[in-house]
Write a protein that binds this DNA or RNA. Structure first.
Length: 105
DNA sequence: TACTTGACCGTAA
DNA sequence: ATTACGGCCAAGT
């Protein structure tokens, strides 16, 4: 059922290491969720006990209503942001990186 | 049943 | 930088 997706998404987010971040798309991809939007919705409903601050949008920004608190939490674990944006090339979770489509280059 | 909304993504102008 | 559009999937109205 989609309950399984729900748990896989939570599980994936729980496994993001401290000091690293992943995008909604990464989490959706790794947890085999059908779309990134579902990840956002699961976080809204069941994300209170997860390291939700490590999940960012694809361009390295946060959801608008969380921006300040999220950036502060990230800063406490060593993730620096510039003008409200995190440099994904520096902080993106390695497990998420390998989900990128092969055959480039 | 149909339409709207959301912690989204990618592309285009 | 911003807006707009299509795609995505589940929940709310």
């Amino acid at each position: 059922m989609d309950e399984e997706i729900h748990e896989r998404v939570r599980d994936t987010i729980k496994s993001i290491p401290r000091g690293r971040v992943a995008t909604y798309g990464d989490v959706a991809d790794i947890s085999k969720a059908p779309s990134p939007r579902l990840v956002g919705r699961i976080l809204q409903e069941d994300g209170h006990d997860l390291p939700w601050q490590r999940v960012l949008k694809a361009d390295g920004t946060c959801a608008p209503h969380l921006r300040d608190e999220q950036l502060q939490l990230l800063r406490e674990e060593g993730v620096m942001s510039l003008d409200g944006k995190v440099n994904l090339r520096e902080y993106r979770w390695e497990e998420a990186r390998k989900e990128e489509p092969p055959g480039l280059f």
